[in-house]
Nucleic acid binder design. Sequence first.
DNA 1: GCCAACGTTGGC
DNA 2: GCCAACGTTGGC
Length: 171
Amino acid sequence: MPGNSHKNSPGSTPRYWLLKSEPNCFSIDDLAAAPDQTTFWDGVRNYQARNLMREMRVGDQALYYHSQTNPSVVGQAEIVREAYPDHTAWDPQSDHFDPRSTPDKPLWDMVDIRLVRKFSQPLPLPMLRTVTDLAGMELLRKGSRLSVQPVTESQFITILRLAKEATEATP
DNA sequence: GCCAACGTTGGC
DNA sequence: GCCAACGTTGGC
């Protein structure tokens, strides 16, 4: 399509993603406490995950997932800035330092996300595995390690419904 | 702490 | 380009 930018034009359909974080590294509470409840999603050092981030558009929605302890989907966030160079790769002091990346030739990207909501109850991974509508979700695949994953609209809607039901079940 | 799954590296 | 060795992720 000539002249077609990749941005979501007003009214276009957003896409859906899942972002993994170790809660002791950057939890959803950290996101909630951040200025404007916004942060840059740095530290992705996997090509497949990076390429998925490059497909993200402003307005896309993401599930926020805590890995490691009590693995669970804990909330929802929104993409507010599209992929740009991850400067933490240039910082020798950073845990995510990668000398192959330079300001002239950036190797890794990040996006900015803003909190939409934290779920009143986390949706634990073992529970999600029992949900028929989520069969086939990348997160539930055995050995799934991708920290940035695509999510279908139907999977996304199902997760939001489960979050709402969990809220109503707990006064 | 264990280990399966997976990505990356490097010798050839 | 193959593949063994290695390192990492992340559920359990």
